[in-house]
Amino acid sequence: MRKIFFFLLLTSIGYNSCTDTLKEPTGTLEIIFKARYNSGPLVLFQSDSTGQNDPITIMFKKLDFFISDLKGNQDGTLKDFADVGYISMSNSLDSSSSEQGISLLINELPVGSFDRLDMGIGLSDAVNSTTPGSYPSSSPLGLNSNYWPMTDSYILCKMEGDINQSNSTTTGFLYHGGVNGMYQQRSFNHSFDISENATTTIVLYLQAEELFFKTGSEIDMINDSQTHSGQIGSTEYNLAKTAMENLSNSLYIQQ
């Protein structure tokens, strides 16, 4: 009888240890987003010179955006990392906080070597057709603050602040990208390893001056100071799309 008991006990221990070993090893990827303005950290509510004739200075007050469809390329196969994230630079109220950046942790990723990180800026049209009531409040998709009833769309990006003109006028700017067709996709060639029970860190820089002042994709912040995206094909829409494209193109990976 005692022998049977020990046999069952050993069998049970053996089975349980087997199920443990069958579990795929996983690791964590931390993506840190750091907003910069020229060579320094971007600090909200702080004026920076634009280097332009007009406007002369710019002060960011808000810089938030959705990212989505994060994937890693492993031996030619794209592995899903995360569906949606929301990056808010709201803590960048001084140099040190801005330099620290905003961390996005993605847990339980398959271990292995990757050579590319893919990411959407904004939301695909399919996700954008959903509404906050379908998600819990713990998801950025579940918040009315990220949604626009006017266009039945999420607010894909929010860039807000003030500009100071050469005639000493201070005016606000607001570029909210929403509605379908604004989704941007980026691929960052970068080799990284996901190791078991370890965290791999990738830093993405957002060069904020390129949102408005990069040669070839400038935004006339004085005459086109705001957009809520409007209807597809409208001036407002085109302006918002430029802002979204600039946002996407302003991201650089730290090698």
């Binding site: 906050p132 009531g133 009315n144 006017m150 209807q231």
Partner: peptide, 22 residues
């Protein structure tokens, strides 16, 4: 602006007092 093209009159309420169908 939801009414169509950028409107000449917009009280802008729905930015903060936001809602969706569900």
């Amino acid at each position: 602006d939801a009414a169509g093209s950028p409107s000449t009159k917009d009280a802008e309420c729905a930015h903060c007092h936001s809602f969706s169908q569900n």
